[in-house]
Design a protein around this nucleic acid. Structure first.
Length: 552
RNA sequence: GCGCCUAUAGCUCAGUGGAUAGAGCAUCGGUCUUCGGAACCGAGUGUCGGGGGUUCGAAUCCCUCUAGGCGCGCCA
């Protein structure tokens, strides 16, 4: 990419100057070229002279002048300018910019895609909600984040897998079974009271009723433990279907649904526990089995097997991550967890260390809480959904596109205040519609061109020299860089902000430049430009899982 | 008490150690309105929570204090 090319040139220029003795022969500093924030400073800028100033004991401006002197000429660059206090600024050549329109048009929906030198398999695990109830808003945030990151990495050439981890064993499932059993008995007119920490949501009653309709009194003959276990299994199945459906509404789907239970069925859980024991990390005390994570960097030790003989969530999670890294051999794994799981990070990292897995292969993203408001009023959790704010209600009210855009616009690190009233009131002014409108507008003009049978395939892009045209092209070619920023930071909020900026550039161009006019040559060139704009808009919207409408 | 996250314009939030800290909404004013006005152009508003430090340069890195959120179970 151009940025790297400029960095190499700068490096060369410094070495050249050093060879000629025009700059002191000190060790080279880290060369970096960045996009400028202000177009007055050109397109790219480097701070290299300021970084070298100290070791060279020379003023940054003088160093910059020397670099300029030895910088090779590049076809992409029209001008290189030294600016105080010591920047080297690059201005892109207009002809080169205009040619990029043809690049976009020939790459079309693959524009910006790249291929990695070596295959890299990356897994994103997200949502992974216990199948004990419907999804709430916070789950939606993680879902949108994960699915978007997966899209972004795919476009950068990674081999991506999206996984949902199903906790289908453990006390929560036992509890679900117990709750369902009570509701089942009640549906059949029997006296029964709910367990102390039962799932209270009305959805439990609905499922119990369905089970009565389907199986009748079949479970009455079983012992309460057997019946509860059986009903728990059925409940998990049904709730998973509900969860899958709700995620599909949000346009989130998975390549793999991994069942915790399978870790026990295949013996992997036992294998990993033995492994930890063999390596001397395991101790029995106070009637339980402990993993000595303190020695591996955690703040405290953690229990693997409880006094009652049942494994903890932590224990199976170690086996699960063993499976990810050492059985399925992902090069990299990204887990997206809610803020309430933050305390789980240190001990998982400790566990991976014990298993000999390089820590840089494992990333945990923490997604902060979402609270829902309607103006001043805090939206209360509904009893129906079991004391949560259901994701589905928010999707129904706000719409998928606006919902995804809204989630993506906030950094995962900050808590989110989702104001439904604002989201609805602004629906026309909502940035997501602003971006989509740009796409629809383009589609509309292209339809007219088609009606009038204007063939612009041979349009001459070198006619694109007006400032609105060039700034639009400058925005268009930022797309691959924005994508790479998301790859580097795992922060997708760059996408919605970029999409908005691109739409602004287009709308501004549209206002100032008539696309289809009496000047047929110019019309053809501009049709190319707007088609390229539509392609990039559709790409960035697509990455975010948002539709790019032809009409609205 | 300990750990993680957050504090930026009236509101909701961006900001990858650089140049005059930016958007949207809200407010005020203008454009034009025959390719889609769900548009365009302009204006104002800031002790970047407080205080120290590192740096040629800090909203950004370090320390500290304050405020809020979330954790700190033989739950998941």
């Amino acid at each position: 990419m151009l940025k790297e090319k400029l960095e190499r040139c700068l490096c060369q220029a410094v070495q050249e100057a050093q060879k000629k003795g025009e700059l002191p022969p000190v060790t080279m500093a880290q060369v970096s070229v960045e996009r400028t924030q202000n177009s007055k400073h050109g397109d790219f800028a480097s701070n290299l002279p300021m970084k070298l100033a100290r070791s060279m004991q020379t003023s940054p401006l003088l160093i910059a002048e020397q670099i300029l002197e030895h910088l090779p000429r590049l076809p992409e660059i029209a001008d290189v300018i030294v600016a105080p206090p010591g920047f080297v600024n690059f201005v892109l050549r207009k002809e080169w910019l205009a040619r990029q329109v043809n690049n976009i048009l020939s790459a079309r929906e693959t524009y910006g895609d790249s291929v990695l030198d070596e295959e890299c398999r990356i897994q994103f695990e997200f949502v992974s909600v216990n199948p004990t109830g419907p999804l709430h808003v916070g789950h939606g945030r993680g879902a949108v984040l994960g699915s978007t990151l997966a899209n972004v990495f795919k476009s950068a050439g990674y081999s991506v897998e999206r996984e949902y981890y199903i906790n289908d064993v453990g006390s929560q499932i036992t509890n679900l079974g117990g709750s369902l059993y009570t509701r089942y008995l009640q549906c059949l007119g029997k006296e029964a009271s709910l367990p102390a920490d039962a799932y209270m949501g009305d959805y439990v009653i609905d499922i119990a009723r369905e089970i009565v309709d389907e199986y009748g009194e079949k479970f009455l003959v079983l012992s309460s433990d057997e019946a509860s276990a059986e009903l728990g299994r059925i409940g998990v199945c049904r709730l998973l279907k509900v969860i899958e459906k709700e995620l599909a509404l949000l346009r989130v789907d998975f390549d793999s649904w991994f069942r915790e239970k399978s870790l026990y069925e295949t013996g992997q859980y036992q294998y990993v526990m033995d492994l930890l024991r063999d390596r001397g990390y395991v101790q029995e005390r106070e009637g339980a089995v402990w993993f000595e994570t303190t020695a591996l960097g955690d703040e405290k030790d953690n229990v693997l097997v409880r006094g009652d003989g049942l494994p903890t969530y932590f224990a199976s999670d170690i086996a699960y991550h063993y499976n990810k890294f050492l059985v399925r051999k992902f090069d990299r794994v990204v887990d997206i967890w809610g803020a309430d799981h933050q305390g789980h990070i240190l001990r998982m990292q400790a566990a991976l260390r014990a298993l000999g897995i390089e820590p840089e292969r494992f990333t945990v993203m923490i997604c902060q809480m979402v609270s829902l408001r309607r103006g001043e009023e805090v939206v209360k959790a509904s009893k129906r959904s079991g004391n949560i704010i259901a994701l589905k209600e928010v999707i129904d009210e706000v719409g998928v596109d606006a919902c995804r855009f809204h989630f993506l616009s906030r950094s995962a690190d900050s808590q989110m205040d989702f104001d439904l009233e604002l989201a609805k009131k602004q629906s026309d002014e909502n940035p997501v519609y602003y971006v989509q409108y740009a796409h629809a507008r383009i589609a509309s003009i292209l339809r007219i061109a088609l009606e009038r049978e204007i063939d612009y395939s041979g349009g001459d892009v070198s006619l694109l020299v007006a400032e609105p045209e060039l700034s639009l092209i400058r925005q268009l070619i930022l797309f691959p860089e924005v994508r790479d920023t998301v790859i580097a930071t795992l922060e997708p909020q760059y996408l919605p902000y970029y999409a908005r900026d691109l739409a602004t550039s287009f709308h501004s161009f549209y206002k100032q430049c008539r696309v289809i006019s009496d000047d047929e040559e110019l019309s053809r060139a501009r049709l190319k430009l707007i088609e390229a704009s539509g392609i990039v808009l559709a790409r960035v919207l697509g990455m975010m899982g948002i539709t790019a409408p032809e009409r609205m």
